[in-house]
């Protein structure tokens, strides 16, 4: 890895992919590629972030993202604290800013923030001295998920430019969709979103995507299929007439995959609703790279933590990863 790539990273926070340039995204992906090897070692630890303190501030329940961030931090030798909404003073009426100020008083280096409300990482970044990494905020962005998706696609297909990617599911409420749309389009992919009209936000085309309501069309030409989780609550608010209707029109099963390209990649950010957005044939079949996504999540999050709080400007990465 050349030092020239390192100097591209100057950001204190990672709040989303909307503001990132293609060069910055590539910097993260290249850093992740060199850090992925750490997790394959018998002793899965390097001293890159020794002495740094990272707070996983999860206002919304999460298992896989929190675990992935925690492992990423630990493999870089950082100290981690996990604060979950149930145990935090938020349930006692404290404001978010007060919670953050109190944690800052303990001298921490980064907040990894997950919140059900869009924009909370931005809010914290405006008030905190520490770095803020968005681990998913409402339906806004989930940048590390999109980065690990990009990383996984790149691993299988070498490059992203020119690929046709279809994102199928609840686009309206999906932070994963938004971050992926920004990331994929910046790296030159052609993105199609596919959803029932009730689950598509207005003017989504202006984000640079094609729109279809026909799942067959979304599958037929795609190099990559990204499925999103359909939440059962959506049925209660009349956003979908029923899970059954959704499965019939948008669910990915063997029949729908018959016309797919042979080298199609099937992705899902998890947790999968088997039998709703995709069946076991699709989830566990040869096209599925769902578990690769999970593995790559750690490498991508190591890269993000390292770039945001670890790398003194101009330090070549090799120096840190011993």
């Amino acid at each position: 890895m050349s030092a020239a790539i390192e100097t591209l990273w100057t950001r204190k926070h990672l709040l989303g992919l909307e503001d990132l340039s293609a060069d910055e995204i590539n910097t993260i992906l290249k850093t992740a590629a060199s850090l992925k090897e750490v997790s394959l070692r018998p002793i899965k630890k390097v001293p890159a972030l020794r002495g740094k303190t990272i707070v996983n501030l999860f206002f919304e329940p999460s298992t896989r993202t929190r675990t992935s961030f925690e492992l990423a931090a630990k493999r870089l030798s950082a100290d981690t604290i996990n604060i979950a909404s149930s145990s935090s003073s938020l349930t006692k009426g404290e404001t978010i800013i007060d919670t953050v100020n109190n944690l800052e008083a303990l001298k921490v280096d980064a907040f990894v923030v997950r919140h059900a409300s869009a924009g909370v990482p931005n809010l914290i970044a405006q008030h905190a001295r520490a770095s803020v990494i968005n681990a998913g905020d409402g339906a806004h962005e989930h940048p590390t998920q999109a980065l690990l998706d990009l990383f996984t696609i790149q691993e299988h297909r070498k490059k992203i430019a020119g690929l046709k990617v279809s994102i199928i599911g609840d686009i309206s409420h999906s932070r994963v969709a938004r971050s992926n749309i920004w990331g994929l389009t910046k790296l030159g992919a052609e993105v199609t979103v596919c959803a029932p009209p009730t689950l598509l936000p207005v003017e989504i085309e202006r984000m640079g995507v094609q729109v279809t309501h026909d799942a067959n069309e979304a599958v037929e030409n795609a190099d990559v299929l990204m499925l999103l989780r359909i939440q059962h609550e959506r049925q209660e608010t009349q956003l979908i007439p029923g899970i059954r209707e959704y499965r019939l029109r948008y669910g990915i099963d063997a029949q729908r995959l018959e016309k797919a390209k042979p080298d199609l990649l099937i992705m899902h950010p998890g947790p999968v609703n088997r039998g709703v957005e995709l069946d076991s044939f699709a989830a566990d079949g040869k096209s599925s790279v769902i578990l690769d996504q999970v593995t790559n999540g750690v490498a991508v999050r190591m890269a993000v933590l390292y770039l945001v709080i670890g790398a003194p400007e101009g330090t070549p990465l090799e120096g840190a990863v011993v």
Binding site: A118, G138, H140, R175
Partner: peptide, 11 residues
């Protein structure tokens, strides 16, 4: 509108 779509908040 487009801004609410990008921010991911209810319109």
């Amino acid at each position: 509108g487009y801004v609410s779509t990008v921010l991911g908040v209810e319109g």
